[in-house]
Simulated assay, not measured.
Amino acid sequence: GNLFSRVANIEKDKNGHLYNRKSDFRVEYSILEELECGMAVSRKTERAKILQQLSKIQNHVKRLQQQLKNVKPTPEFVDKLKEMMEEIENAINAFKEEQRQIYEQLLKEEKTVINELSLFERKVDLWTLGSKTTEKVLKLPSARVSVDKTLENHLPEEVVEFERFLQRTGGQQGGWDDYDHQIFLKVWTKHKGRLSYMDEVLEHLCGRTKEDIEQHDKWYQEFLILHKRKKESIKKWKKKQQQEKGHLKQKEKSEKRLKEEWLQCEEAQKQKAEEERKRQQTVIEAWKKQKAVAFAMEQASLEEEMQKKQQKVRQRQCHMKLLLEKYTLQKKEKEELEKLEKEKREEAEKEGRKRIAAEEMTKFQQR
């Protein structure tokens, strides 16, 4: 029940990643999605094929059962039964052989995946430590791990101890080949490490002796202990890193606060300087305004004085014009008077001459 629950949860998590269209890794997941669909189709096809083979075998068995209901004690009947049984046996053997080959292929693929996952797990553990020198470890084969002095100075002691153990004992499989080690792991896990697993392991690993398995068991026990220590060490290292990160964040927070206070102080100084500039600007504007008013008043005074002067000039001009007109009129009147007097004199002289002429004429006539 727990296994099915775990599988269901893993499937749920997997589908949550594969089919999440909002994921940042949608392009990469789409490749996995296609692979998943292909594998699902392949599994359905294989299941249908197996069901077809089993159905065929089942039909043969049913036919045999029908024949056995009507047993006939004849050589022909016996030969027929023998032929049917051989046919069923051949079909079963062929099915078992095909499934065995498929199982062995899956087992090999499982070993490859487990080895790759183990290697990736070690890579992730070393990456987690954050040291660039660990890149040297990542480039080495999993079966022969070399831990040099440079790495010892950068890796936790438990990690170095684990890597040295792998180097000394033949890597992740303890010197065994992948197939034997995976069989050992499968049976050992099945029996949860109890000694009852020994007989089953010996049954599956014909080329291994009991001493080999006991020695490998001892190696595996030590492997688990050292691996656990390594994981705990990395966990502690992570915790320490988190604490240092927390201190660093606190320091950054403090520096940020100081920077903010400094910026606030600088801003206050800028604001004060701006206010002083505005105050001076106000004073200057008031002074300019005052000067402008004074200048305007001065201009108005000058203009008023100028207008007065111009008015005086106009008055003088008007007076002179009046005097000139009066003089002209008087002169004209004088000239007319003189002309009139002249005409009167001339008239008087003319009258005098006429009178004299008349008198002379009278005198002449009297003579």
Rank of each mutant, 00 (worst) to 15 (best):
L107F: 14
E343F: 07
L64H: 04
V145K: 05
Q271A: 09
Q307R: 11
K342Q: 10
G16T: 03
H216E: 01
V147D: 00
A40Y: 04
K253V: 04
W219E: 00
V313R: 02
K332H: 09
V187E: 01
V7Q: 11
H319G: 03
L106V: 09
R21C: 03
Q67N: 07
Q281M: 03
L263I: 09
Q221Y: 05
K228S: 11
K363P: 02
T189Y: 06
V124D: 04
V147Q: 01
R229A: 00
I225A: 05
Q67A: 15
A8P: 03
W127S: 12
P75C: 02
V147A: 03
E222R: 14
E303N: 12
T128V: 12
Q167W: 02
H319C: 06
K69A: 04
G193D: 00
T128S: 14
H17I: 15
E266I: 08
S131M: 03
E76N: 05
L337Y: 06
K339R: 15
G175T: 00
V283L: 09
Q173Y: 12
H17V: 14
E83D: 09
E260F: 02
D177T: 07
K238C: 08
C206M: 07
A357P: 02
K190H: 05
F295N: 13
Q65D: 05
Q264S: 07
K309D: 04
F165T: 01
C318S: 15
T133W: 04
Q241C: 08
M361Y: 13
D177C: 10
E325S: 10
